[in-house]
Amino acid sequence: MISVLIPTYNYAHFLDETIQSVLNQSFTDFELIVVDNHSTDNTTEVVEKYLTDPRVSYYRNETNLGLVGNWNMCLRYPKAEYIKFICADDKIHPEMLDKFYAVMELYPNVSLITCDKQLFDGQPWVVELPLKHLQQGKKVIFDTMTSKSWIGEPTSVMFRKSNLSLGTFRNDYTLHVDWEMWNRQLTVGDCYIIPEALAYIRAHASQHTRAVSSKACFEEYYMAKLMYDYQGFDNAEDKVQIRRIVREKAAQCAKKAMYKQIPKITNKKSRETFFKALSITAREGVFLKGLGLLWNGFQTKTKKRLLKTAMLIPVTMVSTIIQSEDIPVSVISLFVK
Score class of each variant (00 low, 15 high):
25 Q>S: 15
26 S>G: 02
28 T>D: 14
29 D>N: 09
29 D>C: 05
29 D>I: 03
34 V>C: 08
36 D>V: 03
40 T>E: 11
41 D>E: 10
41 D>T: 05
47 V>R: 02
48 E>K: 13
49 K>E: 14
50 Y>T: 00
52 T>S: 13
53 D>F: 15
53 D>M: 08
53 D>A: 13
55 R>E: 14
55 R>Q: 14
56 V>E: 07
57 S>N: 01
57 S>V: 14
59 Y>I: 15
59 Y>R: 04
60 R>W: 11
62 E>N: 07
63 T>K: 08
64 N>Y: 13
66 G>K: 02
66 G>C: 03
67 L>I: 06
68 V>K: 01
73 M>Q: 03
74 C>N: 11
76 R>F: 12
76 R>V: 06
77 Y>T: 01
77 Y>F: 15
79 K>C: 07
80 A>N: 14
80 A>I: 03
81 E>V: 05
81 E>Y: 00
81 E>R: 11
82 Y>M: 09
85 F>L: 15
85 F>A: 00
87 C>D: 08
87 C>Y: 05
92 I>P: 01
93 H>C: 00
99 K>A: 14
104 M>H: 11
104 M>S: 08
106 L>E: 14
106 L>G: 02
108 P>E: 14
109 N>I: 09
110 V>P: 00
112 L>T: 01
118 Q>E: 10
118 Q>P: 06
120 F>C: 12
124 P>G: 07
125 W>R: 06
125 W>H: 15
127 V>T: 07
128 E>F: 11
131 L>C: 03
131 L>G: 05
133 H>W: 13
136 Q>L: 11
136 Q>I: 05
137 G>Q: 00
137 G>K: 05
140 V>D: 01
141 I>W: 01
142 F>L: 04
143 D>T: 10
143 D>Q: 02
143 D>I: 09
144 T>P: 06
147 S>T: 06
147 S>D: 09
152 G>H: 00
152 G>D: 03
155 T>M: 11
155 T>E: 11
156 S>T: 11
156 S>P: 04
157 V>I: 10
157 V>N: 05
159 F>V: 02
159 F>P: 00
161 K>G: 04
162 S>N: 10
163 N>M: 04
164 L>E: 05
164 L>M: 15
164 L>S: 10
165 S>Q: 12
168 T>C: 14
